[in-house]
Amino acid sequence: MKERRVLVVEDERTIAESVAARLRAEGFTVDIAGDGPSAVERFRTGRHDLVILDVMLPGFDGLEVCRRIQADRPVPVLMLTARDDETDLLVGLAVGADDYLTKPFSMRELAARVHVLLRRVDRASTGGPASLRLGDIEISRAERRVVRAGAEVHLTPTEFDLLVHLAGRPRTVLPRERLLAEVWGWADGSGTRTVDSHVKALRRKLGADLIRTVHGVGYALEVPA
């Protein structure tokens, strides 16, 4: 089994050490960074499979860290926030975070979220056909790459997973709650704004007409001509 490496970015040392201890007990290799600049540097040299990222950091904040690491290499990001502020959460999702936890959180919940994120990446890479073609969009599941009109499009892991899920059922309207359950693994149906934020990102990167909104229900992928 492949060794999984996690980068924990948290300036409160006691929290960072507690998170690292729990993840090591789960079998992960863990690195810790305590500020924005060192987090970006550790990520660039560490080949991490997942990043746990606090929003409030010295140097520059977690949102800027997320932007920089996602530009370097797509990776699942679980953001930690000290307050349940919807604006902060939506901005975090917009810059490439995949999930979030509000402090205080249980280590059991954090470990469960980490496993769900990694399973989702594995499932999207191995399940279904190796590649999909929709008009001028080519999706390689194995390489987790998207090309449109010959140009590669950079997607975060969750953006890629959502696109693959919609592309597997073109023109079919999928409710937000179903997308949350099947893409994010959230069974309670809360957090539909998370879906909206990722759809907005896909439209920005792949074209505004790619995903159709059915108001009050959900979304459908329209096959480009």
Rank of each mutant, 00 (worst) to 15 (best):
E3R: 13
R4S: 09
R4N: 11
R5P: 05
R5T: 09
V9P: 04
E12A: 09
R13A: 12
I15E: 12
R22E: 15
V30L: 00
D31P: 08
I32K: 06
D35T: 04
D35S: 05
P37F: 05
V40E: 10
V40T: 07
R42H: 10
T45V: 13
G46C: 12
G46E: 11
R47D: 15
H48S: 08
D49N: 07
L53D: 11
V55W: 06
V55C: 05
L57C: 10
L57K: 12
G62T: 06
L63P: 08
L63F: 12
E64S: 04
E64I: 11
E64K: 03
R68C: 07
I69Q: 09
P76F: 02
V77Y: 10
M79F: 09
M79H: 11
L80C: 10
L80W: 06
E86R: 04
T87E: 15
L90H: 01
V91F: 05
L93N: 02
V95T: 07
V95W: 01
D99G: 01
Y100E: 05
L101W: 02
E109Q: 09
V114I: 10
V116F: 11
V116M: 10
R119Q: 15
T126E: 14
A130E: 13
L132E: 11
R133I: 15
S140T: 10
A142L: 12
E143L: 07
R145I: 13
V153F: 00
T158W: 03
T158R: 13
E159F: 11
L163W: 07
V164D: 09
V164P: 03
R171S: 14
P175R: 03
L179H: 11
E182I: 12
W184C: 12
W186T: 14
G191I: 06
G191A: 08
T192K: 06
T194Y: 06
T194I: 12
S197Y: 02
S197F: 03
V199M: 07
V199S: 01
V199A: 05
A201S: 12
L202M: 05
L206M: 02
L206Y: 01
D209F: 00
L210Q: 08
I211N: 00
R212Q: 07
T213M: 07
H215Y: 06
G218P: 06
A220R: 06
P224T: 02
A225P: 13
